[in-house]
Nucleic acid binder design. Structure first.
Ligand SMILES: [Zn+2]
Ligand SMILES: [Zn+2]
Ligand SMILES: [Zn+2]
Ligand SMILES: [Zn+2]
Lengths: 172, 172
DNA sequence: AGTGTATTGTTATACTATATCAAGAACAAC
DNA sequence: GTTGTTCTTGATATAGTATAACAATACACT
């Protein structure tokens, strides 16, 4: 289960604003199915819907934003545990990532593969991009090794302005 | 105002558990006074007390933990805005850092100097250490430059087990 | 003392997340 | 297909984190 990782327009950087995002969503859902099948867990309808909502854009989305959109057919809003349980499942199986500095979530850009999560966040358009580069991780590991620190988890979130937004006046 | 940065036992790594922590606190309070004077802002008693509580250990402390210890002489607990305002002030003037992955705060180990905040968090003893090393920042900037991203703020929090804790059975 | 600004007090409320127990759906074995 | 088991969802309550808004006080400066 390595091949779904680099499909679509996802390339470890910020997509063009006009990219075919329906494709991003479709790819994410398909990969999720594959990952869950491989791990012998169930991608239930509820979980699939939450994943789809997370992927509705490249902006980190909060649990309660998801909640507001998660009506149960007859328009009744779900309760918090419903969405948090789905999010926990998706986190555990590497289908989404938590953005700590925002209390929000983004879809994982390379599900089914082991990787350190490194995220860039545009403060202008609000979008996030998962970085796919070994250098930061290598630097972190070098520093940790020197002071005898055994790494368990890395939270790397870089806020700033993406290339597309720099090419325009702010907040345009 | 560069010289207070490397005083005491603070060295960009985890202190020995038995270090002279009273010295850490004293140094932090003294540096804070210097920084505030240099910036022409007031380190009020309230702010000084909150800073002291943040520095009571090297473990990140939550706003409400501070609140619980912030009695107003006659034993009356302060209200949330009181502590959040003090924390905001201390953050703005670089005297503390927010640990995003924990919704908590630590004292800054080199106040009064420009620096990227990189934090290691021990999942065993719970302590935090601010790293003072250029390599991670250089790697981050190299990656950002390649994709045309202009960095504004970095959140780098590495969780794992510190050297002191690895030298003992877990949770000892 | 008088005026303007910065700080703190106070109350209410918003936002984020989890605990707990009950009900329902899926699955395996018989 | 029924039973027993496990996983998943529903529902209610509550915990934990953070801010809005406005009043009162303290401080700095003339
Ligand atoms: Zn897309
Ligand atoms: Zn990922
Ligand atoms: Zn110390
Ligand atoms: Zn610092």
């Amino acid at each position: 289960m390595k091949r779904a990782a680099t499909r679509g327009t996802r390339k470890g950087s910020f997509d063009r604003p006009q990219h075919d995002h329906a494709r991003c969503i479709a790819d994410a859902l398909q990969s999720a199915g594959t990952v869950c099948a491989a791990q012998g867990v169930r991608l239930t309808e509820q979980r699939r819907r939450v994943l789809e909502l997370v992927w509705q854009s490249h902006r980190p989305i909060g649990a309660y934003e998801i909640l507001d959109q998660l009506t149960d057919g007859s328009g009744r809003r779900a309760a918090p545990p419903t969405v948090y349980r789905a999010l926990d499942f998706l986190l555990e199986h590497g289908l989404i990532h938590r953005v700590e500095s925002r209390n929000a979530f983004i879809g994982c850009s390379h599900p089914g593969t082991e990787h350190v999560v490194e995220i860039m966040l545009c403060t202008d358009c609000g979008r996030a991009a998962e970085i796919d580069d070994q250098r930061i991780d290598r630097a972190v590991r070098a520093v940790a090794a020197e002071i005898g620190f055994r790494i368990e988890r890395q939270t790397i979130e870089i806020a700033g302005r993406c290339g597309h937004c720099q090419a325009r006046p702010a907040h345009a």
